[in-house]
Design a protein around this nucleic acid. Structure first.
Lengths: 332, 332
DNA sequence: ATGAAAGCGCTAACAC
DNA sequence: GTGTTAGCGCTTTCAT
């Protein structure tokens, strides 16, 4: 049996309450008894039981993190930002993968809440109705990181994806392009449909460029799908001269498809994308991209959550972080 | 205040014990009362409090995962394997990053143990003496995933890194190479020094090839360091014709260094490496590599941990998984 | 500054 | 098959 607070109390000749005060840094303890207690703790090797503490205090200093897939660099980077700030504020993290399946997200929400987490960071590509309801009922604060809430109901941390898309496409247009293909993951995702596609279209409209339906190349969100999309792109009735991709994985897939087919980037085709990983710097040519500050989004989301859990006043619950462009070689 | 087991008991006109039995699937409950209880649970929206359960039962169905950096594809993939099996056996995961700092690892061990985890999966590049001691004292089982234990004291899951290194270098030798550079991360890490370097040297020795000290190119474990190492490689008194790299990130760095300097792979230089990510398939030429089954290592480690937590007999605590080679284009 | 005592919400004997 | 009753190890009033 492990050493309990009671053993320490007896050993130090004080009450449990005093030991508790010492352990929790309460100032109302005479220095000499504090020393005595500390000495007993040390000698007995006492470690507070966080579960008992959690039951008594109704705080677990644990937050739930629900993420589609921790093995992707996108969510890995985001999660690292979350974890670092969590550590800073002495929270532990319960991390679970949802694979973006709404039912699974629901289960995880209930599961984490059952574990009495003090707050939740939620990441996904869309917030389903059932998930929204469950989150609305949650007794603890929830922050969405890198995740769109179309209803603007929850606290969120993002960049202005629409604006980033717009500026990306403007760069292409300024380079003389008129036939620009939009390389996108599933348009069922709010972020692709409501934000990125919208920015793309705004730029084209503003430049009086025809928006072609066949230029919306929608695919599964994988490198291989993007690589193979080159097949489809070749069949287009109007041939494009540039690509705007919603993330670096898709961009690299298209890049390799184009290059393996014997074409040159940026001579034959120019490419711009959102940057979600260092892939953009590793491929040749290196890709010009709108850099999404994933680590920071995670960090700010966690910081916001600590404030919410602390019931501090927050001025703005929908945070937009700045983004910037990394000018590289896929655009001349 | 949330609904408790007591509220349900009162509502269903039974005792707490009966509610507990129903919730925990105990068979000793008459179907009709079970139904009655379930109905109350449903109506009141009762959710068991896992913290209270943990305190009473001394089991939290939570395991601690200590990882150097979740944002790397290596540990991301490993962690995903762990998480999936954890989910399968209904465990939650507390995930913490150590940045490979031994003092931090120590803190995390103590921290997780304080949270009363039922077991721990530990990942690192070496097991320090203090960490070894703390782990030896731990009251719950611990499994090392993708992590060397030179003392063979703990349960581990790995591949035979030495053999993979050996076979990699043999491939190079069979292709006629005699001047083969070893591109490695810090040799302070057991895995690099004790296993990978040893395999490299065994292959050379067996072929009666001189082992040159200057061919051990040690560097920080980053793409940029590897990219810049090309500078150093050029200065070597004997010029190499091939590279064996301890991971795909370093291999790609060298590859880009070589190619950006105007040389060709595999015509001027051949490259082989351990594969830790899909980078090997994305670069051009694609890299031939010894594929490390990261997901499986994580999954098997977690499965092993469930057995240990269950006090089941396990035949072998030092598990070696098979590996294979992906033959691609960096070797002709 | 310190102690006594009542819970926190649940599990697990044990009794019936 | 069901109920009673101790705890699990801690925090937190409330006294003193």
């Amino acid at each position: 049996m492990a050493i309990t607070i009671y053993d320490v109390a007896r050993d130090a000749n004080v009450s449990m309450a005093t030991v508790s005060r010492v352990v929790n840094g309460n100032q109302n303890v005479k220095p000499s008894t504090r020393r005595k207690v500390l000495e007993s703790i040390e000698r007995l090797g006492y470690r507070p039981n966080a579960v008992a503490r959690g039951l008594a205090s109704k705080k677990t200093t644990t937050v739930g993190v629900i993420v589609p897939d921790i093995s992707t660099s996108f969510y890995g980077e985001l999660s690292r930002g979350i974890a670092d700030i969590a550590t800073m504020y002495e929270y532990n993290i319960i991390l679970s993968n949802s694979d973006e399946r709404s039912e699974r997200e629901l289960e995880l929400l209930v599961d984490h809440l059952g574990k009495q987490v003090d707050g939740i960071i939620f990441m996904s590509d869309s917030v389903s109705e059932e998930v929204r309801e469950e989150m609305s009922r949650a007794p603890v604060p929830i922050v969405l990181a890198g995740t769109i809430d179309t209803e603007e109901q929850f606290a969120t941390v993002n960049i202005d994806y629409e604006q980033a898309a717009y500026e990306s496409v403007v760069k292409l247009i300024e380079n003389g392009h008129k036939e620009i293909v939009f390389i996108t993951g599933p348009l069922s995702r709010d972020i692709n449909r409501v934000h990125k596609k919208a920015g793309y279209e705004r730029a084209l409209k503003e430049a009086d460029i025809t928006i072609r339906e066949e230029f919306m190349i929608e695919m599964e969100d994988t490198y291989d799908a993007a690589y193979e999309s080159w097949e489809k792109i070749q069949q287009l009735t109007v041939q494009p001269t540039a690509f705007f991709a919603v993330n670096s994985t898709l961009a690299v897939g298209v890049l390799n498809g184009v290059r393996d087919a014997g074409h040159s980037v940026p001579d034959d085709y120019e490419i711009i994308c959102y940057e979600h990983s260092n892939l953009t710097r590793i491929v040749r040519p290196q890709l010009t991209a709108a850099v999404v500050p994933l680590y920071d989004i995670g960090a700010v989301a966690m910081r916001l959550l600590t404030k919410l859990m602390n019931e501090e006043e927050v001025e703005e619950k929908q945070i937009q972080l700045p983004f910037h462009f990394a000018e590289r070689d896929s655009l001349s």
